[in-house]
Simulated scan of single mutants.
Amino acid sequence: MSFKEVHISSLVVHCYPEHLSSIKLHIDTFNDAEIYGDSPEGKIVIVLETENQGFITDTIEAINNIPNVLSTVLVYHQIETNVDENKIKIKNTRTKYSRTEGEL
């Protein structure tokens, strides 16, 4: 059994509301990003699960470079160590190490 780190982060992206749909489609192409919610005002909540901190900063930079994105802010970062790499999430499988609201 092999173990490694998983970095769990959440971001809030603010964009022009009229471009919300296209920006969400673009963000969906990122392998380690999952959209958890959005608002009609142009705010998007994203959760990242990455192998290292460098991927987080790279993703923030990539999102900030999407046309019509106003800002991307890191609001949470947690490092899980000794995670069984056989259980690392594959996008959209819902086998996550992060907890959703209401779970303990």
Rank of each mutant, 00 (worst) to 15 (best):
Q53D: 06
F3I: 11
T81G: 06
M1N: 10
T50H: 00
V69W: 01
I56V: 12
E51V: 00
V6T: 10
E41H: 13
D84C: 10
T72M: 05
Y36K: 14
K96E: 14
V12C: 02
H26R: 15
K24M: 07
E49K: 04
P17H: 04
S22R: 07
T29M: 10
R94K: 15
K87P: 04
K91C: 04
I8W: 04
E85R: 08
I46R: 06
L70D: 11
H19M: 06
V6G: 02
T29A: 08
K43V: 08
L74V: 03
S9E: 07
I46H: 05
D84T: 07
Y16Q: 14
V12E: 00
L104E: 11
Y76D: 08
R99P: 02
S71H: 08
V13K: 02
H14F: 14
L70K: 15
I27L: 01
P17E: 06
F55S: 09
D58S: 07
E101I: 15
I23Q: 03
V69F: 00
M1K: 13
E85K: 08
K89P: 15
L74A: 02
S9L: 06
L48W: 01
L25R: 15
A33L: 02
S10N: 04
S39A: 05
Y76V: 07
I35A: 07
Q78Y: 09
G54S: 01
Y16W: 11
L70C: 13
Q78L: 12
T29L: 08
N52T: 02
I56G: 00
V12A: 02
E61K: 11
P40F: 04
V73K: 14
P67T: 03
N65V: 06
V75F: 06
V69R: 01
S98I: 13
R99A: 07
H14R: 14
V6P: 03
K89H: 13
Y16F: 14
A33F: 04
L25G: 08
N92R: 09
G54D: 00
D38R: 06
L25D: 15
Y16A: 12
